[in-house]
Nucleic acid binder design. Structure first.
Lengths: 201, 201
DNA sequence: TACTTTTGTTAACACTGTTAGCTAAATTGA
DNA sequence: TCAATTTAGCTAACAGTGTTAACAAAAGTA
């Protein structure tokens, strides 16, 4: 009897249609405005049926998060295969990572919990410039003392801030609470590398 | 007549009490659960009075965002003053930045829009390991070809991912839409520095 | 005291995620 | 084929959210 099989198939299709409707929602209006009600409306079913296929809203988001990491890993593997030299691979992977993040912004934002609250307005905040000024002036001073003075200080500032923000947010995502003090080795490693490159020119 | 002055003073105090109540809320339950209703309840006033002092909820969050950047800038300036050598300043600032982020987690999360949706569960996602494996194996290959083979590959992996994530999220915060292609210079700069440090040992 | 402005209130609107309880359809066993 | 049972889907509600319109009361002004 193929009835059970058909039921499973239908359930699968239903599930897929929920995800598809959700994805269209996300593409047109972003994560913030995704709602169970809108999904139910799109698939022309009542709200509770969605809870037969997903435990809650977060489970739907989790599905896309997994999908996102899957796609990212695939993309990285693909470019890695194009090179034999590991250093060249590292560079290619970095570019692929970058491309993925901006080509699939919705995924990336969900995957790393980014751009959710006041991100649209964070660049309108004058207070950020203060912090930037301190960093930039210090970088300019460092360059002035280095062997190569043609270094783009603004570029270096972005690199510097990015490394810091990256270290922090990665650490924050991975662990609850304050990280072990020996995790500062990572900070030390990244920053000393940055400074060496900067002072060498 | 000091009536006008008193009124201004009272308004200021009212505003401060709203922010204080909001901050206590945030400290005990996080940004997600902060609500106008709870603030109103805490200050023992009705809901709409809050809208006499803040245009909306985001305006309250913006206040804390500004406060956060102010505190961060102060902290950075303070440690900068302790050193004369710019390179040493850069290092000290990096540490101060790190300390701030984890000593004032609530601020930092708001400032950079972090940890909002599924961040608690992002480390439970198996798919992330796949991505990590690809990166780590490549880093191990690079180390194997380098002059110093005692490098901690796991530390390097964290550094590598952090730089990438930092670059991306910083860029994402600052600009709407895909960034100029010449912004890839920042990526190039950071990654080539990382790779140089890695291959040199 | 009469008038005007400010301040604060209640009550509602339009949303959100989630669930209890019922109805109607589909499937199963006799 | 018919009754029993399982399942699917529905309506309606609960408990929240941000926000605002309309009104009452208090405070300040002439």
């Amino acid at each position: 009897m193929g009835i059970a099989e058909r039921k499973i198939r239908q359930k699968e299709e239903f599930r897929a249609s929920i995800l598809e409707a959700a994805w269209l929602q996300v593409l047109s209006d972003g994560w913030q405005s995704l709602s169970i009600r809108k999904i139910a409306d799109a698939i022309e079913y009542s709200i509770p049926v969605i809870y037969n296929h997903f435990e809650n809203k977060e489970a739907i988001l989790l599905e896309f998060t997994k999908e996102g990491f899957q796609k990212l890993a695939d993309a990285l593997q693909e470019v890695k295969n194009k090179y034999d030299d590991p250093a060249a691979q590292l560079e290619a992977i970095a570019h692929a990572y970058w491309d993925f993040a901006f080509d699939h912004k919705e995924y990336y934002q969900l995957m790393f919990g980014l751009g959710i609250p006041a991100c649209d307005r964070v660049n309108q905040i004058g207070e950020m410039k203060h912090m930037a000024t301190i960093m930039i002036s210090t970088i300019q001073d460092t360059i002035a003392l280095s062997s190569n003075k043609d270094v783009d200080y603004f570029l270096k500032y972005h690199t510097y801030l990015s490394i810091l923000h990256g270290l922090v947010s990665i650490q924050m995502i991975q662990k609850e609470g304050r990280p072990d003090d020996n995790k500062k080795l990572i900070l030390q490693d990244a920053i000393s590398g940055f400074i060496t490159a900067l002072t060498a020119g």
